[in-house]
Nucleic acid binder design. Structure first.
Lengths: 135, 135
DNA sequence: ATCTAAATTGGAACTGTTCCAAAACTATTG
DNA sequence: CAATAGTTTTGGAACAGTTCCAATTTAGAT
């Protein structure tokens, strides 16, 4: 059989049908540790890997994966979304000039004493972005 | 014709010519405490106030003010920028469903033990965004 | 195999923002 | 306060990233 079995299970567990495109993209995303990719970057990698996946599918898939908890969206720049394969608790350096994100392990930043959220609301996430410039 | 004097000074101090549009927008921005506005929102407020300022000028001005340190840009949503009139150190709640920002005073969030930035880079800012959803 | 619902596709549409050349303005100088 | 030079403003076109759409293809169940 194919070596896709674990990926298939991963998609099924997330409530997503294991289609060819989703499997291929999941595999590309999983290559080489934790990564931060934009839609265009993923599209380019898929093309390099010989896959041909429509850009609309890239967007659909990234959004579905995010919704399903297989990815996390990181918003650091207006007009562009990054998708993070690191699902554990952590934060980010953002190098604006390079447009690159670097993980910061959660235990290296202590966020203490969060004020209570407004009534009727609850905290969904706490995102810390440390912006970098050349020095 | 002189209730504008302090605003004129503020612009000059920032190295910006005190043009009619910049003065008018600076005044709108200064009304009613600290605020978080998008370009469209500022444009709408200006229109309501009877000013007519081109959208391109709104964008130019917001960017110039940000550059000059009269505003701060807050990135919480892909595809839309918020501009913050609160220049002091602080962080934000972001209510995604309402698209609204709420200030969190700096002393209510303790960010400790930041790791060293990569070589050749320095920390430009530390932005904490606490995302809210309905509970 | 057949069938139905879901996913993919390419392209058009849409949103927020920036760019552009022309016109209007601000500051300076005589 | 007039002429001038350099900025700023303007409306519209252009642009980037993303979403939408109708038609086609595919997955999973019968």
């Amino acid at each position: 059989m194919r070596p896709f079995a674990p990926l298939v299970d991963r998609l099924k567990a997330a409530g997503l049908r294991p289609t060819r495109q989703r499997l291929q993209l999941l595999r590309v995303l999983g290559e080489g540790g934790h990564r931060h990719l934009t839609a265009e970057q993923l599209s380019a990698e898929a093309r390099e890997a010989g896959l041909n996946v429509a850009l609309a599918t890239i967007y659909n898939t990234l959004n579905q994966f995010t919704q399903a908890g297989l990815l996390r969206e990181v918003v650091v720049e207006p007009g562009r979304s990054y998708f993070d394969t690191n699902l554990g608790p952590h934060h980010h350096f953002f190098d604006e000039s390079a447009g690159m994100l670097i993980d910061i392990p959660a235990d290296q930043i202590a966020v203490a004493a969060l004020p209570a959220p407004p009534p009727g609301k609850r905290v969904a996430s706490v995102d810390v972005v440390v912006r970098l410039t050349d020095s």
